[in-house]
Write a protein that binds this DNA or RNA. Sequence first.
DNA 1: CTTGGCACTCTAGGCTTAAGAGTGCCAAGC
DNA 2: GCTTGGCACTCTTAAGCCTAGAGTGCCAAG
Lengths: 343, 343
Amino acid sequence: MTHPLNDRAQLLLKSLVERYIRDGQPVGSRILSKDSGLNLSPATIRNVMCDLEDMGFIRAPHTSAGRIPTVQGYRVFVDSLLTVKPLHSKEVEQYRAKLGSAVTKVELVEATSDLLSSITRMAGVVTIPRRKQTLLRQIEFVSLSDKRVLVILVLNDQEVQNRVIHTEKTFSAQELLYAANFLNSEFAGMELTTIRQRLLASMQQARNDMGEVMQTAMSLADQVLDDKQQEDFVLAGQTNLMNFADMANIDKLRQLFDAFNTKNDILHLLDQSISAEGIQIFIGEESGYRVLDECSIVTSSYKVNDDVVGVLGVIGPTRMAYDRVIPIVDVTARLLSAVLTSE
Amino acid sequence: MTHPLNDRAQLLLKSLVERYIRDGQPVGSRILSKDSGLNLSPATIRNVMCDLEDMGFIRAPHTSAGRIPTVQGYRVFVDSLLTVKPLHSKEVEQYRAKLGSAVTKVELVEATSDLLSSITRMAGVVTIPRRKQTLLRQIEFVSLSDKRVLVILVLNDQEVQNRVIHTEKTFSAQELLYAANFLNSEFAGMELTTIRQRLLASMQQARNDMGEVMQTAMSLADQVLDDKQQEDFVLAGQTNLMNFADMANIDKLRQLFDAFNTKNDILHLLDQSISAEGIQIFIGEESGYRVLDECSIVTSSYKVNDDVVGVLGVIGPTRMAYDRVIPIVDVTARLLSAVLTSE
DNA sequence: CTTGGCACTCTAGGCTTAAGAGTGCCAAGC
DNA sequence: GCTTGGCACTCTTAAGCCTAGAGTGCCAAG
């Protein structure tokens, strides 16, 4: 459907939202009359504002205040009225440099989150990138004290994971070396999920043919591969949110912070953006989570080699400078993708 | 020196502080007259309160409010007037169970921090335990892609550390295995600092006598051992602090949260407790850090095998229930020590 | 369709007032 | 000499009142 709004109404809505975002004060007809560029008297403007209110795009906090945007008002503004402020290339260069100085992957994610929060002066959030395909490069066993074995997985040539597993008997270093060699020769270079399937298959099929050590090696490997990658995100600048009187009462804010700590809700919300290309915006109650009622979230997915692997974004008050935040999130996502892909 | 306070003044100060901690309201002479158990009229009490004010233990927020304790007042209260509320053994058992369910060391520290914050409804903090003596159990090398080697250190039979180092040439798996075997046979079971010293010594002494691989092994090991353990702490329940109107303005609170994120100041403060036996308490400005002006911190060191390895504590408003918090911190420190020692 | 005029409504802030709490001091009493 | 009731005084808090100002909706004229 097209908007039931004529050009003039759209322009006025745009002016109103921009003005409100700038000043944080309800906007009245007089201000809008001067501000909009149209040469209309306040009375005329009032008529239009009345229509806009009927359609649910703006509302008056009380009789004699101006109007402020509703969630639907912001929505229209963001979807079809917004003029985005592109970033200067100088700034972009600066940001690129900041991300470039990160060494490990975790540092990179943290740097990105910091970057988002410091530029926008709101809260920045970046999910830990998923591994799209996880190739096993190498597996090693180290025997610890009795009945405990340390398993080291080298994945994708970059990442290292290790965990300790408990076994039924104590293995000698020889046995473990033997097992590792076998697994490496058999499975190195393959995908973890594939390996897992094959392991299961051969364990059932050929139970009797295998030596004891080999059997154990397989069950060890199976234990190790049997856990899903848990999702997580890194948050920066949450204290920035304490500067916004918008989220008036401390109690709301506390609930929000608790949600950051719990992580579940936020993760679910971010997950929704992972499938969508480009910038995604949740305004106020749109997110569906009560704690975020007075917040907006601007997100973008980011990629490695054209595969989406994570989401980043900014969380702030509904009344935020979308024209600035959107390009920031967009550019940051691109920069992060570039860094991850070039590695 | 002995207190310049007679018994009656002490009793009244005690009553006043207890009452103020309970209600959060300035305490007047009438209340104290009923509350203290002494059979004295408000007028008499007023005289004593006047003395207490002159000595700097209490003060009146304004002419016609009651009195509230000053930092020095709290100090006297905590040092010599307090009657501590011991915990029920049932509770202690419960706490022990909570800590017992943690698997890794990090989980244990987090559980402890959670425990402190959930019982006290304030913020809990636990430093990551220092390793007092670090025995090398095993060292392993895994060659990654070109010129990068993954080094795995197994320490104290429990801990595993790994890091990636960059080398000048690419080593074969054979070479690395050889090097690891050498280092293990030479140094397994020794302390890291000792190993480091010996490595340095033999590298200078016998440079020419050693094979190339051996030299590299040593320099690899040297690179790995050459980093100090960085201090850190785990914080839980910081949002609990948002419930205290005491730290009235959001701005103070924000500064405090920022200090939690920066970690430096808090770490320095906690460090001061690591040398002191038993419970340590910083009240208000005593801590020396402006952000903590309206907070008190109750800490205790904790041990592994009688060696102090860390500090834990609780951070809350100056007006906290010391009689409850002190035993909680004390018991938690003992429990944590016990769990760490028994491992 | 636009506009000036106008009555109306509602808020924010300033001012006043009254109630209440608590004090310090004094003089009387044990 | 300590204790106590009495009393004048101070200061805060909340309520009530009032006014200025902002903004509205509607209407009738252009």
